[in-house]
């Protein structure tokens, strides 16, 4: 009797074991990833706030100016180039849509609102991520693996204050300015394709651009660009600063992987935050 019962129990256990094992391993994996994400987000938040409050120091001014030149001035050309062709493509596409409804007169309205509310901040942020964000990660990553960051600590120079704060300040200033450039050049690009090449009346176009654009639209675009700027700089600097903590690679390889992660994560976060911010300001 006893042996029959025991055999039955064993059979039941062996039947249920695989499914229990799978469930446990799924939750283990899910749980560990969630915990890691949670830890990273927490660390990133602390990293950001500690760096942000160190912006307000007189000694940070020269570094901020240097970073403004690197993030802002040196990104202006590429941002404007992309802005011009984005505007031209938008002008072309919208013209052929609007002409079907006999409403090409609202081309200026469509272009202005599309660029100012959405495309301007998003594309500018993505362009800056590609140009300056990746460079930030690589530069800080190399400084980290060559012990330059440790050297700062030993010299009583806070690495966050010296390396990160100026970049955050420069991003807060330069992202909205570059977004403005993008919008203006984009409107000009759409004017070239819509008015000069396809014959839309220039007066109507610019009248619509001006009359349909409200202050809320402009400010909404600026809010987005500031949020994107903070996200991009924090993510890129964080990835570079903690390059040495990577467990999947070491040395130069870790810098390259950190740079890739920084760009990908920044672009994803730009789009995710775009939806969140839009839902608040709309």
């Amino acid at each position: 009797m006893a042996s029959d019962s025991s055999a039955q129990d064993t059979a039941e256990i062996s039947a249920t074991e695989p499914s229990v094992g799978k469930i446990t391993s799924f939750f283990n994996l899910f749980g560990s990833r969630t915990l890691r994400l949670n830890n990273n987000l927490g660390a990133m938040a602390i990293f950001f706030f500690r760096s942000f409050f160190m912006i307000f120091r007189i000694k940070a001014i020269p570094e901020i100016i240097q970073q403004l030149y690197f993030i802002g001035a040196k990104s202006a050309q590429i941002v404007m180039l992309v802005g011009f062709f984005t505007g031209m493509v938008l002008g072309l596409q919208l013209y052929f849509v609007l002409v079907k409804f006999g409403s090409v007169g609202v081309l200026g309205t469509a272009i202005a609102l599309t660029l100012i509310r959405e495309l301007g901040p998003v594309l500018t942020a993505i362009m800056i991520t590609a140009r300056a964000g990746s460079a930030m990660t690589a530069e800080i990553g190399i400084q980290r693996i060559s012990e330059q960051v440790d050297a700062l600590s030993t010299m009583r120079i806070d690495p966050l204050g010296y390396l990160i704060s100026p970049r955050i300040a420069a991003a807060i200033i330069s992202f909205p300015i570059l977004t403005t450039f993008f919008n203006l050049i984009g409107i000009l690009g759409a004017w070239v394709s819509g008015c000069l090449l396809l014959g839309v009346n220039s007066g109507t176009y610019f009248f619509r651009v001006v009359s349909s654009t409200q202050m809320d639209d402009i400010m909404g675009g600026y809010y987005k660009s500031i949020v994107f700027g903070l996200l991009v700089v924090t993510i890129c600097c964080f990835q570079g600063f903690f390059t040495h903590m990577r467990t999947d690679s070491y040395g130069a390889k870790s810098v390259s992987l950190s740079t890739t992660s920084a760009v990908v994560f920044s672009c994803v976060m730009i789009l995710v935050s775009d939806y969140i911010v839009t839902s608040f300001i709309i």
């Binding site: 000694k59 060559s146 330059q148 050297a151 010299m155 120079i157 010296y162």
Partner: peptide
């Protein structure tokens, strides 16, 4: 910590700074 200086095994010089800027750095910031 203010009394201690550390000379790293691989120097840990700031490669985007000149020799003078490297040497002057601790004085400039501290």
């Amino acid at each position: 910590i203010g009394q201690i200086s550390y000379m790293f095994q691989n120097n840990a010089l700031f490669d985007s700074m000149t020799v003078f800027e490297n040497v002057a750095m601790p004085l400039k910031y501290t």
